[in-house]
């Protein structure tokens, strides 16, 4: 299952994909992108790790964080919606503006909400990608075992 060239690709591409995810996340308020898409892209980076290193290594690295991440994401998202009450109502947005080297930067509760969405998507996607990967690996091991048995019998 563990391929040498995939490990190389994993080493190079995973950070790039994660950067793309962050880029998509930040871009998402006015343009295509956002928390859900960014979460899916980040999950695809982790799927690459699963393919390259196998489920066991990936589970050791990310497994314990998956469900708490989703829980934390939901908490952040609801918290962001509740923060809006300060500004007049549930889900009302609050914006802070900064100017940095001439550029205007806007941060607000919708981004916090998006961050929560991203965490939920990543957490849930890791959980089921790991389970799917484990099932697939078990099936492959079983098949190779059966294949060897028939080969032995033919000899």
């Amino acid at each position: 299952m563990i391929e040498i060239y995939l490990r190389l690709v994993d080493k190079i591409l995973t950070p790039v994909i994660l950067l793309i995810a962050i880029f998509l996340f930040l871009r998402g308020h006015d343009l295509p992108g956002g928390g859900f898409i960014a979460g899916l892209v980040a999950a695809s980076a982790i799927e690459l790790t699963i393919l390259a290193r196998g489920t066991q290594a990936t589970r050791d690295r990310y497994g314990p964080w998956a469900v708490p991440l989703a829980g934390a994401g939901l908490t952040i998202a609801v918290g962001a919606a509740l923060l809006g009450m300060y500004n007049g109502g549930f889900f009302r947005s609050i914006w802070l503006e900064f100017s940095m080297t001439g550029e205007k930067l806007k941060f607000g509760t919708p981004q916090l909400f998006d961050l929560g969405v991203m965490f939920v998507v990543v957490g849930m996607a890791i959980t089921y990608l790991l389970r799917l990967g484990e099932a697939a690996e078990a099936a492959v091991t079983e098949q190779t075992r059966l294949g060897r048995q028939t080969e032995d019998r033919q000899r």
Partner: peptide
């Protein structure tokens, strides 16, 4: 909001 927030917090606690 209340059940969602507390349910999410419970889920967060679950695996810590």
């Amino acid at each position: 909001a209340i059940p969602l927030l507390l349910g999410a917090a419970g889920m967060f606690l679950q695996f810590l």
